[in-house]
Design a protein around this nucleic acid. Structure first.
Lengths: 345, 345
DNA sequence: TTGTAGGCGTTATCAA
DNA sequence: TTGATAACGCCTACAA
């Protein structure tokens, strides 16, 4: 079953004119007889004629579409980013093709190649936890495929990068915990090699250092699967708890959900037993029990901004050489999952 | 800045063969000299040659892509559906193009036309709250564009429809409220003309009727914007409360969030002052305060199943005449937002 | 003002 | 086994 499309040829034949005349009438170009134009437009309208964009694209060598690569579509952060991307793209008359990797590197490569061979005009990518080698991307980029990283970026490719200020977000969160009297602060993060996790960890370390608190490895847990694997995440939560921290910074929605469930099941009271701040974009954070102190990332803005930069590259006549590293500040939403700890010493 | 693509021509020239030879080698077709083939493949590999899919599509008259139309990408239900769609599509080597309407009919029409003119091989659509007239879709469908409705469907177009069993979901929820001793049960829904809302309302009505409770209009509120407009939603919550119900069935994530916030702000205790069941796919529902009794829709399955049906249509040689109306059962997750009311009378 | 012709990159048909 | 050629639908020099 296939869509029966009228072509410019059909319109031309029906009207007894040439295809070029139809083409010109449709794109409002060139001198063309006012009433020929009118006839063509009216007939096209009536017949619901739609120019075949694949043919136009082939001719114009531009598909008017961009590709996105994320790990999970059904993730509050990514879906908000996609919302931002789609909004900007739609405004420019572009299509958005979405692919997900489920954290798997081979899937990421397949998706990127698929996108490139389908002639997307540019690609927006957040690297998947499983990706270490980005040479396949670099090759593509060297061949001038417009490329913008968001969220999880790579040092090895020099292009635009858009993300939130993960360092600041983590630093502010941990500082706030320290101000509130907590000292044994744990860190629960995704894959260690991901840029955003590294930055958050740096912010965490720096805030502790500033307060003269030394790092304790037992408080620090990374999940190589970035919270995508339930078992790994639960194990991390468990082993973190064994070190008896009094607060924790959790990096990511999935890890947050896993932690909260675990705490609930094991009757660990937040914030009495353990204070908690999470990197999370869940709308429902303030409605949780207890309301969750979150580090909120302006996901919609990140998506929109990254897309704007991508269009700058796409529309640039020459190769773009100067790149931006844009960091949107994170917002610390203080809620009851962090209490006021009585400071003893 | 544009991607510099090698074409089949370049490969042919470099190897001193014809383009047809290259094409044949690549698609493993026909008798071709084993070592010519080897040379072509090796060179293509080395040069990272990717066939231009737009050209193939133009030739083959199939784009290997499908389009989705939803109201909001950043919505837990829709993003889970998209996950299901992408998973199936990826397996079949298809691309997924995502568009959102923000509940606006003109945007929906524009998106559908955009998709059609970009030669998607099929379209998956959940009607937007703003849509009443589906004639534009009917025209497309009559021209044999494979089309599958999910979630919010239209009676006026006879094609596959996939959704959850909204009637059963609402019926079960309301019955459970009645069993728990509630009698003054309110209904808070999105746009009245949407199929899913109608079905839920029917389930609600039927459950009340079965228990011999008559409908009370003051308990029943619809939001024409489907919860997308904050003010309208809040107004609905407010006016519903004025009728003093003792329980409420809320249809949708946005409405749920709005209600919960309103209750919190106005110090309305759930379930003491008002028991609550919500159609919601939020992972966090069980972690809310109080844990939320939800009617869960198998969104991933809905997306996957709808996509399977779409591929059946796409791959069918003749026009498909027999259509399926698939309803996945909803799951009632009983949690503390519904209590046990002491039955007086 | 309108028509003709060639090409975008690929593939299928036919001829060599 | 391989090559030349035409076609997919559209656009645009160039010619008329």
């Amino acid at each position: 079953m296939r869509f029966e499309k009228i072509t410019i040829k059909d319109v031309a034949k029906a009207l007894g004119v040439s295809t070029s005349t139809v083409s010109r009438a449709l794109r409002d170009s060139y001198e063309i007889g006012a009433d020929t134009k009118k006839r063509v437009l009216e007939y096209s309208q009536k017949m619901n004629f739609m120019p075949n964009q694949m043919a136009s694209s082939l001719k114009a060598r531009t598909s008017k579409s961009i590709g996105i690569v994320v790990s999970e579509i059904a993730n509050s952060f990514f879906s908000q980013v996609m919302n931002g991307i789609e909004s900007v793209a739609h405004r420019k008359g572009y299509h958005v093709i979405v692919t997900q990797t489920h954290g798997c590197n081979s899937r990421e490569i397949a998706n990127v190649i698929h996108l490139a061979s389908h002639s997307v005009d540019g690609i927006l990518i957040s690297l998947s936890p499983g990706t270490i080698d980005v040479s396949y991307l670099k090759e593509l980029f060297d061949k001038k495929m417009p490329l913008v990283f968001f969220d999880r970026v790579s040092d090895e490719i020099n292009t635009h990068k858009v993300m939130c200020d993960n360092f600041q977000g983590a630093y502010d969160a941990v500082s706030y915990l320290i101000e509130s009297g907590y000292k044994k602060i744990a860190f629960l993060g995704g894959a260690k090699h991901l840029s955003n996790i590294q930055e958050r960890f740096a912010g965490y370390s720096e805030a502790l250092a500033y307060a003269g608190i030394s790092l304790n490895d037992e408080y620090i847990k990374f999940c190589e699967q970035g919270g995508l694997h339930q078992e790994e995440s639960e194990q991390a939560v468990k082993s973190m708890l064994e070190a008896k921290p009094d607060a924790v910074l959790v990096c990511g929605d999935r890890l947050t959900a896993t932690s909260l469930k675990y705490f609930k099941q094991n009757n660990i009271k937040v914030p009495e037993d353990l204070a908690m701040i999470c990197f999370s974009n869940q709308d429902f954070a303030e409605l949780l029990d207890p309301p969750l102190t979150t580090v909120y990332q302006p996901a919609f803005e990140i998506g929109g901004y990254a897309t704007d930069l991508l269009f700058q590259m796409i529309n640039s006549k020459s190769e773009v050489k100067k790149f931006e590293m844009k960091k949107f500040p994170c917002q610390l939403n203080k809620r009851a999952s962090v209490g006021q700890k009585i400071i003893l010493s």
